[in-house]
Design a protein around this nucleic acid. Structure first.
Lengths: 178, 178
DNA sequence: TTTACTGCAAACCCTTTGCACAGTG
DNA sequence: CACTGTGCAAAGGGTTTGCAGTAAA
């Protein structure tokens, strides 16, 4: 109802050729495994698959998507397993929860050296990761000082209509994009 | 579970003296009513009360809060009524949905001339509206041009621990703050 | 009178948790 | 062997929707 039924919770597709960088992270699989182990977590096929799915993602993934994508990496974790794993990864600050204006949460690897924001199409759900300089980090430090907040971080999302959807505002082509 | 049970979905309280500006909007009640009428919507006690509640708010309100606050303005709309009304106000771009890292949505009046972002305490839920210059508006225009997006807007939230909660990280005073 | 608005309650969907069994270290 | 991880299924919590009665214009 929001605006179109095409918002399926998935980005435009692995081959939409629309992502801006994909340089989503500079973390390696081994780095991640290493951190998990050091935190006392056990390595299982599911966890490995989930990590690989996150590493391969070009945009934040929903819990369902993580489960599906994991299947391509030798795992088939239950929904609850993905949920609990994300909870742990979030606690370890390896993963970040992102709100894309949809009812459900999405997750992406969190690389302190390559923080990025998102540009989301409110109609088709396409997500463009923005790898450029984030204009807010300076502000973040100022705020921490001025308001006495600690452990500060931010979430910046841009919403709008992507070129295709802007055009179809009048043409109203079949939804589902692409 | 996230971090503390103190996140009740309310800001620090009408008198916490913590909001930074409250200059939340320059819209008047009459402006709002006018827009509603022009959109063909009918004016009812509930709607008037909801609008007044939004105008008086110092931070984004949850659906429940809007319902409660409306009671102080001569209305007592049902939850569903608030929900549907917010949906309409959002469509008219009079209201904006805000994600504060909580499971539920919050809403606030959207004044194009006084856009502002938020600083949220992840522990007690306190919300500080940031009325200062928003550093992102320039970026917004650039993005619209570079990516061909239209009707662009953004959502910028900062999360961290407020002074009180930062301190209690070790002292662990009873939660619920204040 | 026409059509929108409302309250009530049920339906939904995503999230979270309990529990017993399986698998890692 | 001890303890974490997992699947299954049910419980929760917030969000939406259908419907019939109420009220604005």
């Amino acid at each position: 109802m929001r605006s179109a039924g095409a918002i399926s919770g998935r980005q435009a597709g692995p081959d939409a050729g629309y992502h801006e960088g994909c340089g989503h992270t500079s973390l390696s699989f081994d780095d991640l495994v290493d951190t998990l182990k050091r935190a006392g977590l056990r390595m299982t096929e599911n966890r490995r698959a989930i990590l690989r799915a996150l590493l391969a993602a070009r945009a934040p993934l929903g819990l369902d998507e993580i489960r599906e994508h994991s299947a391509h990496h030798g795992g088939m974790p239950d929904f609850a397993t993905v949920f609990r794993t994300m909870e742990q990864l979030e606690a370890l600050r390896l993963v970040q929860r992102v709100h894309l204006g949809r009812p459900s949460s999405h997750f992406e690897l969190l690389d302190p050296r390559s923080h990025h924001d998102h540009l989301v199409c409110v109609q088709c759900g396409r997500v463009v990761p923005l790898v450029d300089k984030c204009p807010v980090e300076q502000m973040e430090r100022d705020l921490a000082r001025r308001h006495g907040f600690t452990e500060i971080r931010h979430s910046l999302e841009f919403f709008g209509k992507c070129p295709e959807c802007s055009g179809s505002a009048t043409r109203k082509r079949e939804e589902g994009g692409k």
